[in-house]
């Protein structure tokens, strides 16, 4: 069963979307517990509910039923402002398409979540520069996204996701737009990050899934195994 120290606990979480006149079940009674460290890959065919699970873990969407508890916060009951605060502080996002703000440079992109969180200017500049140095982009601070390669953009996006030092990092197909060599570098970076926090990665890539501490198989909105069991601790 779930441990009080688990970062993520989902109980009988369901998500039903309305599509025309039909109800489509994206998630169907998910039970899941994930610890405060480690890399967890979510795999499954298209339409299996991977993205819906990520949306709900990241407070981008609310479940139709069930309870979502992340870092001690029950997301179901949080108001919109609470969800916004959660996204600022508790969850960092890495997107397949990098999603950097095109008219801000690398440093400014990384500083942005800290500005939303109210970190003082001098501190956020220092922290952003340190994060970019950590992902190997110390020499690219003032470059705009259009001046960076795909791999560099994704590393900026990872630095941005870590800006407010969230306990949870969510990544949606982070290597989907990258060549295999660059993708492998990103895997390594995420793996390293997973030593200090929870990283949940939605992926089709077997290589990335192989690096995960645990693989969550989703099919038709259901998890293939009983995931309330704490099978993995890193």
């Amino acid at each position: 069963m779930s441990d009080r120290n688990d970062l993520i606990v989902l109980r009988r979480v369901s998500k039903i979307y309305r599509k025309g006149n039909e109800n489509v079940s994206a998630l169907d009674g998910i039970d899941l517990a994930l610890p405060a460290r480690g890399m967890f890959a979510v795999v499954g065919p298209s339409g299996s509910g991977k993205s819906s699970l990520l949306h709900i873990l990241g407070a981008m969407d609310r479940p139709t039923e069930g309870e979502v508890r992340v870092a001690g916060q029950v997301l179901n009951s949080l108001p919109e402002a609470g969800l916004t605060h959660f996204r600022r502080k508790t969850a960092g996002f890495v997107f397949q398409g990098f999603n950097l703000i095109p008219n801000l440079n690398a440093l400014e992109n990384v500083m942005l979540p800290m500005e939303f969180y109210g970190v003082p200017a001098a501190e956020r500049r220092q922290r952003a520069a340190a994060l970019l140095e950590r992902v190997g982009l110390a020499a690219r601070l003032t470059h705009r996204p259009g001046e960076l390669s795909g791999g560099e953009q994704q590393r900026v996006a990872i630095a941005r996701a870590l800006a407010n030092d969230p306990p949870l990092l969510l990544a949606d197909e982070p290597t989907g737009n990258l060549d295999s060599k660059t993708g492998a570098m990103i895997y390594e970076l995420l793996k390293e990050i997973a030593r200090e926090r929870t990283v949940v990665v939605v992926t089709h890539g077997e290589a990335l899934a192989a690096l995960a501490d645990r693989v969550l198989h989703l099919a038709d909105g259901r998890l293939a195994t009983n995931n309330l069991e704490r099978t993995t601790h890193v």
Binding site: G58, M60, E80, A81, T84, H85, R87, R88, K89, G92, F93, F95, G97, N99, I101, P102, L112, P113, F116, Y117, R160, A161, N164
Partner: peptide, 16 residues
Amino acid sequence: AREIGTLKAIGASDAG
């Protein structure tokens, strides 16, 4: 739209 979604995802408020 995607940029607005991204801003919301990384913690920007609607008012901002």
